[in-house]
Structures are given as C-alpha cells and as structure tokens.
Amino acid sequence: MICSAFAPVEELHHGDFPEPQAGPGEVVIDVAAAGVNYPDVLIVQGKYQTKPALPFVPGSEAAGRIAAVGPDVTGVTIGDRVIAFTGSGAFAEQVRVPATQVWPVPDGVDLEVAAGISITYGTSYHALKDRAQLKPGETLLVLGAGGGVGLTAVELGKHMGARVIAAASSAEKLALAKAQGADELIDYAQEDLRERIKQLTDGKGVDVAYDPVGGPMNLTAVKSLAWGGRLLVVGFAGGDIPSIPANLLLLKSASAVGVLWGNSVRADPVAQGGNMRQLLAWLADGSLKPVIDTRFALPDAVAALQHLEKRKVKGKVLLTLQPAS
C-alpha cells in the first residue's frame, strides 16, 4: 500500500514499491501479517508527530520470517519467526527494519496474533511498568477501555495486580473490558465519569489514569487522581490535545507523564526489548489473550483504516498477507 501524498486514507493505492535491502544493522522480513493502528491513520493524513518522506509504505508493526540479514546483525537468522516495530513499511510483502526493533516469536504462538502485539501491548506495558511504576493493589483508571490500547491496559493492569476501572462509551465495549479483567465499569456516555470514580474509590481517586483519548475527559481524569497519582498521556484518539492545569497537579502532588513507546524503543532498545520478550512469554503461556476485531487482506488496507476511523473497533485490526505458519 503506497502513500504518495498526505491525504485521506482513501488516497492510498495498492501497487509496486522498490524491494527493500538489508543494510548494516538491519533485517528484511517476509510479512505474514501487519497490525493496523490509529496512528497509521494520522501518519497517512500527515497529522502525526512525525512525517515520513513521500512516497512511503505505511504500517507500524508486522510479524513474519526473516528473509535477509544485513552486516553487523547478530541474534537472528534467515527463517526465524519474528515480530517487528517498523514505524512504517509494514503494509507490504516485505519490510526493512533495524534489528534492534525485532523480537523472536515463541514456538506455538500464531504469527497473525503476534503481529498485533508490539504497539498496543508494548505501549501499555511501558506506560504501566516504566512510566507509572504501577504497584499491586493500586487503582488504575483506563479511558477508552474498549479500544486497541485501552483493552491491553485493562488486561496488563489486572495481570500486574491493580484494581482496574474501565471507562468506555458503550455497554458492548465495557463487556469486552470486563472479559479482559476489569473490576469496575463506567459507561461515560450514560454516567458522570467523575462522580462515578468518586463512588468507586470512596472519594480518594485513582492512583494511575491511562488516557489514550484526550479531549475533555483528560481534565476529568486529572481531577480524579489520588494523592501522588500519575496521569499517563498516551494519545489523542478523541481528536483534541488537552491543556493540563498545572495547579491541579500541584495540589495532589500528582504527575502527568508522557508515553511514546516507539521513541522509547529507539532510545532504549535493551529495556524495551526486555519488555517485549516478557510480553511474548506471557502470550506463549496463555497469560495474555489478545482480542482480534477484524482481519483484512493487504489490498483492503483502506477499508481497514476506515474501520479504525469510525472508532468502533473492539480489539485489534490486522492485515494478512500470507499463511501465518
């Protein structure tokens, strides 16, 4: 799938692109499946924090087999099953990736399922473990709990021993969050978010608030923090980038913490590689159970991105390219 100009996703086209070659420190992967994420929509439209040089192939994560290994690469060989954080290029038959952004898939783990792990689970685990330092017994509020990253935050928060309050915009999404381990549910289309949080926490507030939505709910999340609480700024799927009143943080000795997993992988590949290996181990032993919303074929990538734009996705959207053996 080729993006020739920053434009609506409908302008993407399916065609030929130069075959990638593995340079020093790089590998080429035969793509079995690619995860589709909301940032892919923004990147194609030119609305993301970074803009690839045109023309480019979108797609931020993939799974497949190593097809070629460049100089100075160790730890992987041709034929290895891997997942990769690509940044771009995953919506293709092959993709070139720095070897530091590639991790081995354990035996028995389906490549299609693994294709959607890196960004959503990687973001949430980095957010909860590294940025919030979430502790067992703390209370975690997850906004947008029915979406791709929100569901992983619910699942990981519960796995890490937190009491999880899932907030979403429909009963259907909340039912999915409940199935992923949420202890309490808030339908913010029907209930007052702040008042319900007060009720559920006996007025103390939440220790950690995970916000991939932005917009007006961000302020509610800040007001709902407990003493020493941490707000995780994950994204702005709601469209509006909020302003956080600094006095509210001061009054509660609270923190607003940015989370940008992709840049963290590049800045500290050793630590993030350890996180990814832990996530893949949990996936292999059944501790994590990713929710797949829909699978699309590669030529139908526009439809996949449109599906995300409607914001009705429950779980992960995937593009499939070849048998995920």
Score class of each variant (00 low, 15 high):
285 D>G: 04
278 Q>C: 00
19 E>K: 08
226 A>T: 04
298 L>D: 07
25 G>Y: 03
150 G>V: 09
115 A>K: 00
129 K>I: 14
146 G>W: 03
98 P>C: 03
275 N>Y: 15
207 D>M: 02
3 C>F: 13
175 A>N: 14
270 V>M: 07
99 A>P: 13
112 E>G: 07
164 V>A: 05
150 G>S: 01
98 P>H: 03
253 S>T: 12
89 G>N: 05
232 L>S: 01
254 A>V: 11
81 R>V: 08
77 T>R: 00
53 A>G: 12
214 G>S: 03
81 R>F: 05
36 V>N: 04
234 V>D: 06
281 A>C: 10
90 A>Y: 13
50 T>S: 11
153 A>C: 06
230 R>F: 09
124 S>F: 04
299 P>G: 00
185 L>K: 01
132 A>M: 14
314 K>Q: 15
320 T>S: 02
143 L>I: 09
311 R>K: 15
185 L>V: 10
4 S>K: 10
205 G>M: 04
158 K>I: 05
3 C>N: 10
45 Q>P: 15
221 A>T: 12
192 D>Q: 06
158 K>E: 09
35 G>F: 10
44 V>P: 14
311 R>H: 14
78 I>Q: 05
53 A>Y: 08
114 A>E: 10
90 A>G: 13
309 E>K: 03
269 P>F: 02
116 G>Y: 11
124 S>M: 12
208 V>A: 06
172 E>Y: 04
159 H>P: 09
279 L>P: 13
271 A>I: 08
108 G>H: 07
253 S>I: 09
140 L>R: 04
176 L>M: 11
75 G>W: 01
18 P>D: 00
148 G>Y: 11
43 I>T: 13
57 V>A: 02
175 A>H: 11
246 A>P: 13
111 L>T: 04
127 A>F: 12
176 L>D: 06
44 V>W: 10
32 A>N: 05
21 Q>S: 14
218 N>F: 12
204 K>E: 15
158 K>A: 10
149 V>A: 11
226 A>Q: 07
185 L>M: 03
172 E>N: 05
204 K>D: 13
26 E>W: 08
139 T>I: 15
255 S>C: 07
64 G>Y: 05
288 L>I: 14
153 A>W: 07
78 I>M: 04
20 P>L: 01
140 L>G: 09
230 R>D: 06
28 V>W: 14
58 P>D: 02
196 R>I: 14
226 A>I: 12
179 A>V: 11
266 R>P: 14
14 H>F: 15
261 W>D: 10
107 D>R: 00
160 M>W: 05
4 S>T: 15
114 A>N: 04
236 F>C: 12
301 A>K: 01
323 P>M: 03
125 Y>L: 11
283 L>Q: 02
280 L>V: 10
215 G>D: 03
245 P>K: 04
240 D>Q: 13
130 D>F: 05
324 A>F: 12
310 K>A: 14
171 A>I: 09
286 G>P: 09
192 D>N: 11
13 H>M: 01
287 S>T: 15
42 L>V: 04
179 A>E: 15
60 S>Q: 12
62 A>D: 07
171 A>M: 10
162 A>S: 06
86 T>N: 05
175 A>E: 15
50 T>P: 02
253 S>D: 13
56 F>S: 10
306 Q>K: 08
76 V>R: 02
101 Q>C: 12
200 L>A: 00
116 G>M: 06
196 R>V: 12
122 G>T: 02
299 P>K: 05
82 V>N: 08
166 A>D: 13
94 Q>D: 11
74 T>K: 02
285 D>H: 00
50 T>G: 00
70 G>K: 06
